[in-house]
């Protein structure tokens, strides 16, 4: 059973629909104790990092996620659920969960033709092999919608890259935690494949 954390983020039901389509049982919960007891957690997200952190704290979900991480529970973050795993986000100068050292910065392209948000299909290039990315082929494109991007401090926490004016880390991870900036639930087969592998992942990064 996969637990999808409900912290009022927009794409909860889309993620659940994708899991249902794959035949993977899931439940959506706002309850910190249920999250603590989960065998597998998806941490989705659409919206504002500041608002997301406020709801996580109010519901005690920040502590529950940190405990689950420490216990080795496989955790998958998506989009804003990827960004707020780092120490800090430039979005409203928000202190975040700090599960992966680094920060989240706003795109500031010098090229005016690059629009913000970065929205649409863009290829993802695997930089460091990871079990959840093993099905991606070179050149596979995935769907992005975001104005901020993750900058992990350590090279070893960046697993995939995407180019949008700069090269940014589009998938990050640490031990039993993995997260993608792109929307797995809207990236056709490339995204569904990552969700499917997550359901069987033992939480080991290699």
């Amino acid at each position: 059973m996969i637990t999808i954390i409900d912290y009022k983020a927009g794409n909860l039901t889309s993620v659940q629909r994708a899991l249902t389509h794959l035949g993977l049982p899931s439940r959506i919960t706002p309850d910190a104790d249920e999250v603590r007891r989960s065998e597998r957690i998806i941490f989705p997200g659409v919206g504002h990092a500041g608002a997301a952190m406020a709801v996580l704290k109010e519901r005690g979900l920040d502590g529950a996620l940190k405990e689950a991480f420490a216990r080795g529970t496989p955790i998958l973050g998506i989009c804003v659920g990827c960004q707020i795993l780092l120490d800090h986000s430039e979005e409203a100068d928000t202190p975040c969960l700090g599960l992966i050292p680094g920060r989240c910065r706003r795109f500031a392209p010098s090229d005016r033709s690059l629009k913000i948000p970065h929205m649409g299909w863009n290829p993802v290039e695997v930089r460091r092999p990871h079990p959840l990315l093993s099905g991606l082929k070179p050149g596979d494109a995935v769907y992005f919608v975001h104005s901020y991007y993750t900058v992990p401090d350590a090279e070893e926490h960046a697993f995939a890259e995407t180019e949008y004016g700069i090269r940014f880390a589009s998938a990050i991870g640490r031990a039993n935690l993995f997260a993608t900036q792109f929307h797995l639930e809207k990236s056709a087969g490339a995204g569904l494949g990552v969700l499917e592998r997550f359901a069987h992942w033992d939480g080991s990064p290699c």
Binding site: R17, H21, Y143, A188
Partner: peptide, 8 residues
């Protein structure tokens, strides 16, 4: 559609 189509 949302249950079967996984693009925006």
């Amino acid at each position: 559609v949302a249950a079967q189509v996984f693009i925006p």
